[in-house]
């Protein structure tokens, strides 16, 4: 199970509302996209779900249990994974140390975490070649791989990604999304994807929410949204 339900979430930054009575839901095994213009509140939604922001109002449920007041680090142990906006790898730690930090919540299962490390190196051979290197020396694309791999190291039930394609070459973007799609299809990983490249996101996800000024403006199945003139005009215009 990995249901995520957000009900009536309001978050303010010193008076200004970043989220305004926002409600979204991601069911177990779903692949959902969260779209919207700059400043619509996508990052804020993910940060609140990870427990990095205190809501002014609203509730967050994970697997049917309310987690609104659960501290952020405990939510990871419950099964939420988050690839933050802008990668946020630890530049002074080596690549391998970054990955090991991803296993923090599973640190008592040594054999398992060693296996996960091997799995990630299998997926991203580039990271294996550079495993002893300080992560700050990686290229943008490599750093993005590391951020995704690090989040997967905790074996999340739901993975939230905040603009993972940012700064990646188109070829690499496709490769990474192919991989996410595979994780979703083969391992049943639940995914909530924030993405600027709306067309691409709609091709991958089953459903999508489009945010505007902190609340859901449009929601629906991806294939309906792609053909929706409101969406096409405002969000798909020049993208991809």
């Amino acid at each position: 199970m990995s249901d995520l339900r957000i009900e009536g979430l309001t978050i303010t930054y010193g008076g200004a509302k970043a989220l305004d009575n926002l409600s979204i839901e991601v069911k177990t095994g779903e692949f959902v996209a969260l779209l919207g213009a700059n400043g619509a509140g996508k990052t804020t939604t993910l940060r609140a779900t990870s427990g990095l922001m205190r809501p002014a109002a609203g509730k967050i449920f994970f697997d049917g249990v309310e987690i609104t007041k659960v501290p952020g680090h405990k939510r990871t142990a419950l099964g939420s994974g988050h690839v933050p906006e802008g990668r946020q790898i630890f530049p002074d730690h080596t690549v391998e140390e970054n990955l090991q930090l991803g296993t923090f919540v599973r640190r008592k299962h040594r054999a398992e975490t060693t296996q996960s490390l091997e799995d990630m190196y299998g997926l991203f051979p580039r990271l294996k070649e550079r495993h002893k290197q300080a992560a700050g020396t990686l290229s943008g694309g490599e750093a993005q791989m590391l951020a995704v791999a690090r989040a997967l190291m905790s074996r999340p039930k739901i993975l939230m990604l905040d603009e993972p394609s940012l700064g990646l070459a188109p070829q690499l973007v496709l490769e990474m999304f192919k991989y996410l799609k595979r994780l979703h299809a083969e391992q049943g990983l639940t995914i909530l994807l924030v993405e600027q490249q709306a067309r691409l996101a709609l091709q991958l996800a089953q459903r999508a929410y489009i945010l505007e000024r902190g609340s859901v403006k449009i929601e629906g199945k991806s294939k309906d949204l792609i053909n929706d003139p409101r969406v096409a005009e405002a969000y798909l215009g020049t993208a991809s």
């Binding site: 990871t76 630890f90 930090l101």
Partner: peptide
Amino acid sequence: HNPDTSTILGI
């Protein structure tokens, strides 16, 4: 280096 990112890793 980054308390928020540490938190989302479960630290």
